[in-house]
């Protein structure tokens, strides 16, 4: 089937999409947005987090056709031009990145959290990011990064 959707502000099209493909697959393998990651493909790890019509979702759990005509924002669309978004800057500075495979999902999820709650408590950060697994950092520096981003964005 043919798919047409808006990604990071631009209309994109994919042809010959098999109906069983996920939005994640289409982004990564057909449209050249490999930033969203394929760590579990069952909604358990959050590495594929994107915005779908402004709502944070796991793109591995969105069937490609469900995204037809929708607006998708991926990690590649978070930065403001060449400038890193403050969330991205904070993850680099605070040491919230190691292997980085969870990072794109965490960037989008943190962006979503701070959009809803600009000054979250630690407990709120933990609850909001509970669906983003990280195997490298032990999360301490990720918490630091979120706190730093919140502070800078306020």
């Amino acid at each position: 089937m043919r798919l047409r959707l808006n990604i990071n502000g631009e209309t994109r099209e994919a042809d010959g999409v098999w109906e069983g493909e996920s939005l994640l697959y289409v982004l990564r393998e057909r449209l050249g947005f490999p930033g969203s990651k394929n760590a579990c493909e069952q909604g358990e790890c959050g590495s594929c987090s994107v915005y779908l019509d402004g709502v944070l979702v796991c793109s591995c759990l969105v069937l490609a056709g469900q995204a037809e005509g929708r607006e998708v924002v991926t990690v590649e669309g978070i930065a403001e031009g060449e400038e890193l978004h403050p969330v991205q800057r904070a993850f680099v500075e605070a040491g919230g990145v190691q292997c980085g495979f969870c990072t794109p999902g965490l960037i989008v999820a943190t962006h979503d959290l701070l959009g809803r709650n600009p000054d979250p408590t630690d407990a709120e950060i933990r609850e909001a990011l509970a669906g983003n697994l990280c195997r490298c950092t032990g999360y301490e520096k990720i918490l630091d990064a979120v706190r730093l981003a919140a502070e800078r964005m306020s």
Binding site: L84, V92, I107
Partner: peptide, 21 residues
């Protein structure tokens, strides 16, 4: 020292083996 690959990683531009095409 900030890690050299930190910026591409937070932008989703860092190329992992599963991203190769």
């Amino acid at each position: 020292t900030e890690r050299a690959d930190g910026v591409p990683k937070v932008k989703g531009e860092f190329e992992y083996s599963s991203d190769l095409w």
